[in-house]
Computed example of a mutant assay.
Amino acid sequence: MIESCTVIELASVLAGPSVGQFFAELGATVIKVENPRTQGDVTRRWTLPHETPPDDRSAYFCCCNYGKQSVALDLRTERGQDVLHTLVTEADIVIANYRPGQAAALGADADTLRDLNPALLYGHITGYGPDNPRPGYDAVIQAESGFMAMNGSADGPPTKMPVALMDVLAAHHLKEALLVGLLRRTQTGQGAYVPVSLMQAAVSGLANQATNYLNTDHVPQRMGSAHPNIAPYGTAYATADTPVVLAVGTDRQFAALCDVLGRPALAKEERFATNAARVQHRAALDNVLRPRLAEQSADALLNALHQRGVPAGAVRVLPAVFNDPHAAAMTLGTGDAAHPAGLRQTMPGAVEDVAQEMGPPPHFGADTTSVLQANGYARGAIDALEKEGVIQIA
């Protein structure tokens, strides 16, 4: 719980805002600084073809902007930079996703802000590192980091994953780094510059695929959802009604699967008796399993497998996912009956209590006046800033 922590979010889209929302979940005050020249975070306008949001909060924007305050502030003006510097002097963390070189022109770079507040933690998300000016976009990072080359069916083209996973990975890296930075600051009193790149996060996320290559020179090929080291693991099998996925990680689990399918002798065959043998004879194993699984009712099959401790599950579409009580417990409404509910993954225990109390995603510039007043600006000064176009008040 970090209710006394103040976070200034100078970030847009997904990775940076996800980090800001994480700190809001922990109870921090999160001030999202948005550009009035663009009417704020671009994801406010990233709508689905059939989506007609009643205000400036698209469903996409809602996924990572709960619990924040929005300040519309033009950092291309000297007066706007002065306002930012006032906010930063009382802040604990800044989250930015400027390309290298951009932040300095806005008076929002780590050196400038940490000179004003040496205890400040400056979390900086880039595409390729703080010295590379290339913009970072998830789809491109998925391609360049090897994920797309591995993803898709063996006879199909490389495929992007349907979630911006590189952004999500980078956000998790920055959350961890900033929490460590806060801990270190309690010991030293010093802040830090904390850089994280989408490419670094992606490469680190290659996990066993990377070590398979680095240690054995194995270049992963597209193989659908199958696992290169385990079988049967990850492949979707048709049943009489709903597809299922098996995640058989041990020989004991495989023997139990064979018992449930009425083919116990399979587990004793030399080509299937061990995981290494099953990986080697993957195609033959699939040819044996598919017709047996196709005869089964998914519910009956899964119940039998679960009783025997065999990891398996149905392939669900999202309506079924959110009928699950676990997913339902992770869903927060916006608090606005006229606006569709937004999804948030919360954490257990006390942190979940804080998350449930978070306000809805903010309207653009909704908190400009209150935040400036809380930081010592008189009403007349705020009116003057609005007249000059430095700020925008919703």
Results as ranks from 00 to 15, higher is better:
residue 239 T to K: 05
residue 225 S to H: 05
residue 283 A to P: 00
residue 249 G to H: 04
residue 265 A to M: 11
residue 251 D to N: 09
residue 272 F to M: 10
residue 222 R to T: 06
residue 247 A to I: 02
residue 258 C to F: 05
residue 244 V to W: 01
residue 258 C to W: 01
residue 279 V to L: 15
residue 247 A to E: 06
residue 255 A to V: 02
residue 235 T to K: 14
residue 265 A to L: 08
residue 244 V to K: 00
residue 280 Q to F: 02
residue 280 Q to C: 09
residue 274 T to N: 06
residue 277 A to I: 14
residue 268 K to D: 04
residue 232 P to K: 05
residue 259 D to S: 02
residue 275 N to E: 06
residue 236 A to N: 02
residue 224 G to W: 06
residue 254 F to D: 02
residue 241 D to H: 01
residue 237 Y to L: 03
residue 224 G to S: 07
residue 225 S to W: 00
residue 218 H to L: 13
residue 278 R to N: 07
residue 247 A to K: 02
residue 262 G to Q: 11
residue 281 H to I: 04
residue 248 V to Y: 03
residue 258 C to Y: 05
residue 261 L to I: 12
residue 249 G to N: 04
residue 237 Y to A: 00
residue 263 R to N: 09
residue 254 F to C: 03
residue 274 T to A: 08
residue 218 H to I: 10
residue 243 P to N: 04
residue 219 V to S: 07
residue 233 Y to S: 09
residue 227 H to K: 07
residue 256 A to R: 04
residue 224 G to T: 03
residue 254 F to K: 08
residue 277 A to M: 15
residue 249 G to M: 06
residue 225 S to G: 09
residue 278 R to L: 07
residue 265 A to C: 04
residue 264 P to A: 09
residue 266 L to W: 15
residue 222 R to D: 10
residue 225 S to V: 00
residue 265 A to P: 07
residue 271 R to A: 14
residue 218 H to M: 13
residue 227 H to Y: 09
residue 256 A to L: 02
residue 283 A to T: 10
residue 224 G to I: 09
residue 257 L to G: 08
residue 262 G to D: 10
residue 282 R to Q: 15
residue 232 P to M: 03
residue 229 N to V: 12
residue 268 K to Y: 01
residue 280 Q to D: 11
residue 234 G to C: 05
residue 280 Q to A: 14
residue 263 R to E: 13
residue 243 P to E: 02
residue 271 R to T: 12
residue 241 D to F: 00
residue 251 D to L: 02
residue 248 V to T: 03
residue 257 L to D: 14
residue 216 T to F: 10
residue 272 F to R: 06
residue 267 A to H: 08
residue 233 Y to R: 05
residue 238 A to K: 03
residue 227 H to L: 05
residue 252 R to N: 03
residue 274 T to S: 13
residue 234 G to V: 10
residue 246 L to N: 12
residue 234 G to T: 04
residue 276 A to Q: 15
residue 223 M to H: 13
residue 217 D to A: 09
residue 221 Q to K: 14
residue 249 G to F: 01
residue 230 I to D: 00
